[in-house]
Design a protein around this nucleic acid. Structure first.
Lengths: 216, 216
DNA sequence: ACGATATGAATGAATG
DNA sequence: CATTCATTCATATCGT
């Protein structure tokens, strides 16, 4: 992530194909030359600024629009790129953190075949941050981008995690055959008005307490 | 997004718990022991067919049963998978639109037409609806799936506008409001809900014949 | 050239 | 329904 990525990217990839590093397939279907978005350094800088200095983690649709519009000055970019960027950045930061902070007493289970978590990396972006985000300084660029009506939320201290999903792995028992022979049969077949808000297919609670079997 | 598949994920996990799976990919990284459902190509094709050609967006429990039963032919699958698939597919389609559409007051003056999410790919399955989608049988594949209620006469096709992914038709609400009147429901009363009692372990479905889906 | 790593993209599963 | 999390796939890049 915020690793040593700032080497030398081909800025301003107005790259219409060709050009930058052998683009193997010129195009598959769209005119988009490259297969995937390659952020320019300014774009990355701004994104990080938003992330670290402004506590933006999961921008809303509107923010995304704004951000991408802004970043477009520096190169081709679309809303989804911004969206994914934040998603990934956040996820990876979290992921990494999750590994280095195994909650001492909590039984942390690393299920997957252990992937590849590597290490080497230093934060180009120090530890500062924390909602202070005053413009200037860090943003060497075109000014700070104000995303949304909010200046900054109370993200003061980020890293507030609520995670801890139940980790109970695969229940997958699956009723097979016709597993969900639940109680009633749904009425209302019109495709556009699903029933209330309870899904017969989804196990609402993994740990059903049979005492209240009928609740809800 | 719904556009993908262009890549090549190694789908086709050991389908069916029948054990038939021979783990063909013994050669590759056998990391397919995931807990999560990995749709096979056929399954995806059918799901998309239902989504695009039949306008199925939020299938009801009954429909889900049918669909999953049908898809089970091609690999292991549960009702919730189908449920989530539609939810996600729909949500993402909307989200996509949201990122690129000014919120009515976003002063986006830059590059008006820019931004639709790229679809550098297209639906892998042959009968796309895009641009040509037509009523007529939704068939396109190994069997049409009739998701309607039991005796439905098939509102088989109602594909209409959904040609271009960005139709801004349906105003608020959802993207459907299409011209199909809801079918009336058939109500398959359930023996339990009215009676009050209900045994979680006893399943007993009386109507259903979704096993008898047509053909093949 | 490769292999490893970084990271964009996609999507199943959940939660609110 | 909207949002978010986790995982995984795909590919750009860098190191050697």
């Amino acid at each position: 992530m915020e690793t040593q990525q700032n080497h030398h990217q081909q800025q301003q990839q107005g790259n219409e194909d060709g050009g930058s590093s052998g683009n193997k397939s010129s195009n598959f279907l769209c005119r988009q030359s490259s297969t995937r978005w390659t952020p320019t350094t300014e774009q990355i800088r701004i994104l990080k600024d938003l992330y670290y200095n402004n506590g933006v983690r999961s921008p809303t649709a509107e923010q995304i629009q704004r951000i991408s519009a802004k970043l477009r000055q520096y190169g081709k970019i679309e809303g989804k790129n911004v969206f994914y960027w934040f998603q990934n950045h956040k996820a990876r930061e979290r992921q990494k953190k999750r590994f280095t902070t195994p909650t001492a007493d909590a039984p942390m289970q690393i299920s997957p075949a252990a992937g590849v978590w590597k290490y080497h990396q230093d934060h180009p972006f120090p530890n500062n941050i924390t909602a202070s985000g005053f413009p200037s300084s860090s943003s060497s660029s075109p000014g700070v981008l104000n995303v949304g009506p909010v200046g900054n939320h109370g993200y003061g201290s980020m890293a507030m995690e609520k995670s801890f999903r139940d980790c109970s792995i695969s229940p997958s028992g699956d009723g097979n055959g016709s597993g969900m022979g639940k109680k009633f049969v749904w009425v209302g077949v019109d495709p556009y008005s699903s029933g209330g808000g309870y899904h017969p297919f989804i196990e609402k609670r993994k740990y059903v307490d049979y005492e209240t079997l009928e609740d809800e």
